[in-house]
Nucleic acid binder design. Structure first.
Lengths: 265, 265
DNA sequence: GGGCGGGGCG
DNA sequence: CGCCCCGCCC
């Protein structure tokens, strides 16, 4: 019997309207089973679902005007799951969407950026992250397959930023964020990229537009992630970052992170 | 001896930043000796001179933030001429630029639009037009070669608008504008396009973005012009409007008007 | 730097 | 409709 592979990806698209052509091209070239998008920046009525369907992808999306917005794309059937983080999250923020695809539950999050460690937005970010533990607890089981993908807006380890000493304490690489994320991770997640690239540095998914030549100088952050519970983690065959979309004419500030799983029964 | 042709063009580009790619493509395909641009909408520091030089064109430009802005492009040497309309014109308006190219003096104007016949801007437009007579008088001679190109924001004759009866009295086709323009024309200009298309209607250079399907329904105005003094007018071989750029993906609301002159000595 | 409005303008 | 700007956000 031949192996059955399941290829998934996460991408902060920074406007699905501005980048839908490149998205469709990428889907055609990479043929993933699932793509989780963040910062679609479009209300549901304007989500280019028809366009994506033509390209062979179903979509489940939750958007609002200007900010945030998440979506899950798949050539397979997408069965919506509970996507409500609960009381901690401001309503209609459009930062979390969940679905079951091919029997695998998938949670896609766009964690608040947090602005600066002194701001109210930072404490909101921390509460939002911690609320995820309760969300996972009420909806899933750590000993069953579960995928958590998205823009976490946190680089978990020193290898995940280009200048760990200088950046420690900055938003996105702050002890309080690490603590909050570890708290959720302890529920039962493995970092799938890190699993396949033990203590390797220099692998990033985000380069700030405002840093001159950030990509060429590789002044990036690994803040987009693919995490999974143990039963799926042990079936993961590889994980990688596709940097090419970030080299195109109109790149997002983020790029795609991918992982592949062997899901033979 | 073979004839020596001189091909000139005028184009209201409605932002040279937004349309520099199409401009460069058009220059490559049409290889004019001179192009006069209006509404470049850039300060001098941001004018894409290097870009145009790469495409084989020198440029002389005068711009301001947001509004107006004029430029003269040529593969030949561009010798600046007096570009000051005088006291009537508000300073730094960037509506007039003049140069000598291949021994021919060229004046490029972006005449004020005038808003509505009741507004102060309309009387400013009339004064501005009339001031041109004094400008031509002080700087040039009607019995010597002189080219005047630009967006005049006036359709001179009934054939120059799509609905002369309905539009008579509107800004751009108003008796007061006709009177002012005739006053300047009497200094010594010929309308080179009209010379080659006697009493032909339906030839327009501008279609309002706000009129639905204006181009398809040819609901236009001929408000961009190429005028010349007698010694040049008698050497004009043809004049035409290139409508193709207006059919492209990101058209200006105007298109190119062109003329060719035989300048054998 | 590059998305998103929103308001001014022709 | 499609430029311009500005301010907000990342």
């Amino acid at each position: 019997m031949i192996a059955l592979y399941f290829k998934i990806a996460s991408f902060n698209i920074n406007s699905v309207r501005a980048r839908k052509e490149m998205l469709i091209q990428w889907l055609g070239e990479n043929k993933p089973d699932v793509v989780c998008l963040q910062e679609t920046k479009v209300i549901n009525a304007d989500f280019p679902a028809a366009c994506l369907l033509e390209a062979g992808y179903n979509s489940l999306f939750k958007g609002r005007k200007s900010y945030n917005g998440v979506a899950i794309l798949s050539p397979h059937q997408i069965n919506p799951l509970n996507s409500d983080l609960g009381s901690i999250a401001e309503p209609d923020e459009a930062r979390l969407i969940a679905a079951e695809i091919k029997g695998i539950p998938i949670v896609n999050t766009y964690i608040p950026q947090g602005q600066s460690p002194e701001s109210d937005k930072f404490s909101y970010k921390i509460s939002w992250i911690k609320a995820l533990k309760e969300y996972f607890d009420s909806n899933f089981k750590p000993d069953e397959p579960l995928l958590w993908l998205g823009d976490f807006n946190v680089a978990p380890e020193p290898e995940d930023v280009h200048a760990p000493k200088r950046l420690l304490g900055r938003v996105g690489f702050h002890p309080t964020e690490h603590e909050a994320l570890d708290y959720v991770k302890s529920w039962g997640f493995k970092d799938i990229f890190r699993l396949h690239h033990q203590s390797e540095g220099g692998h990033f998914t985000f380069w700030d537009y405002r840093v001159p030549k950030a990509l060429d100088r590789n002044l990036g952050w690994r803040i987009d992630h693919i995490w999974a519970t143990a039963p799926l983690a042990k079936r993961s065959t590889k994980a990688w970052i596709d940097i090419e979309p970030r080299r195109k004419v109109k790149p997002s500030d983020h790029t795609f992170i991918l992982a592949e799983f062997n899901i033979d029964s």
